[in-house]
Design a protein around this nucleic acid. Structure first.
Lengths: 160, 160
DNA sequence: AAAAATATAGACAGACTTGTCTGTATGTTT
DNA sequence: AAACATACAGACAAGTCTGTCTATATTTTT
């Protein structure tokens, strides 16, 4: 459980704290305390807090999509695939305290000028739309599902 | 243009800065500088930054809904009313730099423990759903429109 | 075993934050 | 004209933030 390299402990802590309490509300000190890592060790692995945020988004994108694909691929029928996708949101929200979408949350906290992060967020959403286009294979319908999916994500944050 | 009482200048500044740059990224100093108001004057009108945020949400709720109702009431046919609602988002986003929903943005920046703000946000969204239920007068259809409306709001932030 | 890499704790700088306070000026009401 | 409310500028306290640095300890590699 604790036999994990510092670099990964840091990323795990950031993943939990950024998503749970928000990016700006989470200081580096909170991250290193949670990760049980010295401050110098942190800055040896990540040059800045911004770099950590980028690593967080990149890993989150990977893991989140892997989980989605795994759940959706279990189903054969198209209808059940779509249902599985929505159940995946439900599952994740229950696990993560109804904090909605980590990417959308980050988007509201960073300045527009942060090109790198902005493109990670946008690409994440484009990939999600493409994902639905692939399984539904009707552009308009896929877009509709995508929009409802996004709404579910944000509304779960409002209504818990 | 500038012949406005300090209390209102402060709220105007907060409205612009909170929505444009985010709540946590906007310091009191930025607000009073923009409002051209002394710090002591600010704290004479608003006890804390949190109180200012509450005033901001309350006024935003009022003004935003008034604008929505005004645009929707212009139309007679149900279909056109719905379209007018979506055009209202478009108009507002163009005016406000594609920063999406001020309430959802605030939600991601505050801690769960902030009951007062949380209830303002939740009530804003309940009122919006009720608004659609009133004009569409079919619960399921109204919910669908509400969800798509919400998705439009957030997606405009992603894709500008 | 010696050398190099990686970890630790925590002090520190400098810039921010919110909120308080002092002292002064302007404007309104009596 | 006197009294009061409201405005101003800005110093200050107390705490936060990110990021740097020193000095020591523990691993890992050679």
């Amino acid at each position: 459980m604790e036999n994990v390299a510092p670099r990964e402990r840091i990323l795990n802590a950031a993943t939990l704290l950024f998503h749970q309490n928000g990016y700006n509300s989470t200081g580096i000190n909170a991250v290193i305390d949670y990760a049980r890592v010295a401050k110098a060790s942190f800055y040896a692995h990540y040059k800045t807090k911004n770099d950590l945020a980028i690593a967080f988004l990149e890993r989150r994108h990977k893991i989140w999509f892997e989980g989605l694909i795994k759940d959706v691929d279990k189903e054969k029928a198209l209808k059940n695939k779509v249902i599985a996708a929505f159940l995946y949101i439900k599952k994740m929200n229950e696990k993560e305290n109804y904090r909605g979408c980590a990417f959308l949350n980050m988007l509201t906290e960073i300045p527009r000028s942060n090109k790198k992060m902005y493109s990670l967020i946008k690409n994440h959403k484009s990939d999600l739309l493409q994902f639905f286009q692939k399984i539904v294979n009707n552009k308009e319908q896929a877009f509709m599902i995508y929009m409802l999916f996004e709404a579910c994500l944000t509304e779960s944050q409002v209504y818990q």
